Simulated scan of single mutants.
Amino acid sequence: MASWQFFRLNIAFPLILVLLFLLDGNLMASLGNFLLRGSLHAVPMLTLIWFFYAIQFGVMDKMPFYVYVVIIGVLYDIFYTGIFGTYTLSFLGACFVMERLQPYFDSRMMSGLLLFLIGMLVYLAATYFAGKIIGVGHESHLAFFIFLLLPTSVLNLVLAAIFYYPGWSLLQRLG
C-alpha cells in the first residue's frame, strides 16, 4: 500500500468517525420528539454503522482500528453518559464479535446486514446489562426488547442498508 493511501485512510476514517459521533448526538437532540415517541425509543448508531463498514469492507486491517473504537467509546462515555466504561466495552464487544464472525458471511448486503444486526444486538445488550449492574436501567427484559431493541434495530438496519454501497465505495477509494 502506498504511503499516501495509508495517510488518507488514517486521516479520513477518524475524521468521518468524529463527524458521525457528533451527528449521533445531534440527531437525538434535534429529532428527539420523533425518535423517542412515547415509550418507543429508536437510537441512531451511525458510529457503529461506520465501524461495521470498516469490518465488512476489509479496511480495518489497514489502520489502528481498535484504537479508534476505544477512543470513540471513551468519547461516548464522557459526552453522553458520564459513566466511564459502558460504551467503551459495548463498542469493543460489538466490533470484536463482528470481526470474528465476518469470515463466515459473504460480501452481499443481506449477509452484511445480518452481521451488523448481530453486532448491534451485542452492543445494545452490553449497554442494557451495564445499566442494570450500575443501577441506572430499571426496565424489564421484555420492555427493553419491545421498546428499545426492536425500534433501534429497524432504524439502524435501514440506515445501514441505505448507505451500504456508498460506504463501500468511499472505503474502497480511501483504502
Rank of each mutant, 00 (worst) to 15 (best):
K62D: 13
L75I: 00
V74S: 04
F79A: 08
Y104D: 15
I55N: 09
Y104N: 14
E99F: 13
F57T: 04
F52K: 05
F84S: 01
V69I: 11
L48C: 02
L101C: 08
L48I: 05
V67W: 12
Q56D: 11
Y87W: 14
R100M: 14
A54E: 08
I83L: 10
Q102N: 14
A54N: 06
Y80L: 07
M63P: 01
M63T: 07
Y80Q: 06
F51W: 07
K62C: 10
D77A: 03
Y66E: 05
V69Q: 01
L48F: 02
P64N: 10
I83V: 11
Y66S: 00
F51N: 06
F65Y: 04
L89Q: 10
L101P: 08
S90N: 07
L92V: 15
R100G: 10
F96T: 15
G82F: 11
F51R: 02
K62N: 12
L101F: 09
I71G: 01
T86G: 15
L48A: 05
I49L: 05
P64T: 10
G58I: 03
L75F: 11
Q102C: 15
I49W: 00
A94L: 06
G58L: 01
F91E: 10
F79S: 02
P64E: 09
P103Q: 01
Y80W: 13
R100C: 09
P103E: 04
F79R: 05
L101N: 08
T88R: 04
R100F: 10
S90V: 02
M63W: 06
T88H: 03
Y80G: 02
D77W: 04
Y53M: 07
L101G: 09
M98G: 08
Y66C: 01
Y104I: 11
L48M: 05
M98W: 05
T81I: 10
W50A: 06
T86S: 14
I49P: 10
I71C: 00
L89M: 14
P64S: 04
Y80C: 08
E99S: 15
D61I: 15
V69S: 00
V74M: 09
L101Y: 07
Y76H: 08
E99I: 13
W50R: 00
F91T: 07
F51V: 01
Y104A: 13
D61M: 12
I71E: 00
Y53L: 09
S90I: 09
A54M: 06
V69C: 02
Q102P: 13
F65M: 03
M60T: 13
L48V: 04
T88E: 08
A94C: 07
L92K: 07
T81K: 05
T88A: 09
T81V: 12
I71V: 04
Y53D: 11
G73A: 07
C95M: 06
S90W: 00
L75M: 13
V59K: 06
F84W: 14
G93N: 08
D61C: 12
Y76S: 06
V67P: 13
Y87F: 13
P103Y: 00
Y66Q: 02
F51Y: 08
Y80P: 02
K62V: 09
F51S: 02
V67S: 13
F96I: 15
A94Q: 06
T86V: 15
P103C: 03
I72A: 09
T86H: 15
Y104M: 14
P103N: 05
R100W: 11
S90C: 10
Y76I: 00
M98V: 03
A94Y: 05
L92F: 09
L89A: 15
